[in-house]
């Protein structure tokens, strides 16, 4: 039996909003450690990895590890039926062919129950090496979202370059070009507004803005986003997931293969 209860059900709604347009079908791996998911987009250009730790749930029971394959747009449709303040409970019996979602409104006597069909998916897992990166940047997530949205008006790709204590996002296209330069901020009063840059070596690399704009759909999950870059490897865009108390619940990490000059 698998059962996971989340008082702040909105977190799960936000997680689905952040992945459903990138990945159509995926499997949640549920173990005593928590729930995780890894999937590539259909073009195999990007990969998303989600982790929700067991102790972040308000109740978590997983007697034996289960894989819950599902259509994420179906799950997202069902989660839209839950209110932002609802408690969400996921339940799956061992060897069942569906997952049950129970939504409970706060201070009300209303409960709703939905079922989503499970699917057998051929999951391919990619091993992601845990390596140090040349550049790590932490910045406000809304700023990253804004930059990606603005630059997509100019071109399809953004060139990210980092030198000394600044990071530069540049795009060019038929209409002209655009550049956004961000400098490291002094220790800010509000940590969520700060920009911090740690650089081992300068870097310059290009990425498709279409994917970055998909990743930015995770913005409501976290006030800060972390970008990690090294020469000739995928960019990592990470949003940590915290609950209202600020406790660490897990993360969404997106990996994006670079574009190279032919």
């Amino acid at each position: 039996m698998f059962e996971a209860k989340l008082i702040q059900g909105a977190i799960l709604k936000k997680i689905l909003d952040a992945i459903k347009d990138l990945v159509n079908e995926a499997s949640w791996d549920c173990s005593s450690q928590g729930m995780s998911l890894q999937a590539m987009d259909t073009s195999h250009v990007s990969l998303v990895a989600v982790q929700m730790k067991a102790d972040g749930f308000d109740k978590y029971r997983c007697d034996r590890s289960v894989t819950l394959g599902m259509n994420l747009s179906s799950l997202s449709k069902i989660l839209k039926c839950a209110g932002n303040d609802d408690t969400i409970t996921l339940k799956a019996p061992d060897d069942g062919d569906k997952i049950t979602l129970v939504f409970e409104a706060k201070n009300e006597s209303e409960t709703s129950e939905y079922e989503v069909k499970l699917m057998n998916l051929d999951s391919e897992y990619l091993g992601i090496p845990d390596t140090p990166y040349s550049v790590n940047v932490k910045m406000p997530s809304h700023k990253f979202q804004r930059i990606c949205r603005d630059l997509q008006q100019i071109g399809d790709a953004v060139t990210i370059s980092c030198a000394k204590d600044s990071i530069r996002f540049a795009a060019k296209g038929d209409l002209g070009s655009g550049t956004v330069n961000l400098c490291q901020t002094a220790s800010a009063d509000k940590p969520e507004d700060s920009v911090s840059i740690s650089m081992q070596e300068p870097i310059i690399q290009s990425f498709a803005l279409k994917y970055l704009n998909h990743f930015a759909k995770a913005t409501p999950l976290s006030p800060q986003v972390s970008l990690s870059l090294s020469p000739d490897v995928p960019l990592v865009v990470e949003y940590s997931i915290t609950d209202d108390d600020g406790s660490d619940f897990g993360y969404i990490r997106y990996y994006l293969a670079p574009k190279i000059d032919e």
């Binding site: 590539m40 990969l47 990619l126 091993g127 498709a208 000059d261 032919e262």
Partner: peptide
């Protein structure tokens, strides 16, 4: 032009 690389060129099947 720019060539888009695939993610599975970087990360091998586990």
């Amino acid at each position: 032009g720019n060539k888009q690389l695939k993610i599975d060129c970087f990360f091998k099947r586990a």
